[in-house]
Structure formats: C-alpha cells, structure tokens
C-alpha cells in the first residue's frame, strides 16, 4: 500500500497549472537565470512537463531559452554546476 502511494507521488505533477501562464509571461529570456534554474534538475537536465506542470507552449520557450543559455556558458550542459 505504502509502496504504491510513494510510487504514484513520484509521478505526480507538482503544479497542476502552468506557472508561466499564471504570471502571464509572454517571452522567456535566456539571460533570466533565476527562472531557468528552476526549470532544470540537479544534473542540469531540463525538467519534464509532468514534473513542473508547464504547458506545452511555455515548455517550448523554456527549452529554447535553456539551450541558448547553455551555448553562452551561463548554464552547464551536465551536472548542473551553474555559477
């Protein structure tokens, strides 16, 4: 019982509603690291939508912004060693 409960929780969405839609964000800047850092995991990978609850449109914008930040050496490609 407990096992199933924990397993279900790990796949549960944290935010049911897209936080970018709630705050009415229309474009995500790659220099805005405060926002982008929240969208990557400890290993530097982009968090999936099922974890963050971001809508498809904003997830696309987040992905582009993170990739641009990686190119400009603001975010790491792996291990999440951003500074």
């Amino acid at each position: 019982m407990a096992y199933y409960k924990r397993r279900n929780q790990s796949f549960r969405k944290k935010n049911v509603v897209c936080q970018f839609c709630v705050n009415k964000v229309y474009n995500i800047d790659y220099k805005n690291l405060e926002v982008l850092v929240r969208q990557i995991g400890p290993d530097g990978k982009i968090n999936p939508r099922r974890r963050t609850g971001t809508c498809a449109r904003h997830q696309r914008m987040v992905a582009v912004a993170i990739k641009r930040a990686r190119h400009m050496a603001m975010l790491a490609f792996d291990r999440g060693t951003w500074l």
Partner: peptide, 30 residues
C-alpha cells in the same frame, strides 16, 4: 562565443528587470 538571435522588440535594461520580477515562478510567491 557569440550568438545573434531575433528579439521581438528592443528591451531596455529597466524593463528587463521588471520582466524578471514578473517571471518569478517560485512556488512560494505564486
């Protein structure tokens, strides 16, 4: 490194800072 991207409109420094505050999606703030 260099990068040239299209931006929708010229963003001034002050407005970008305002956008920073707008785009805060911390779980505590929202």
């Amino acid at each position: 490194r260099y990068m040239i991207i299209r931006s929708e409109s010229p963003v001034s420094v002050s407005s970008s800072q305002e956008n920073d505050s707008d785009t805060d999606v911390s779980e505590s703030d929202s």
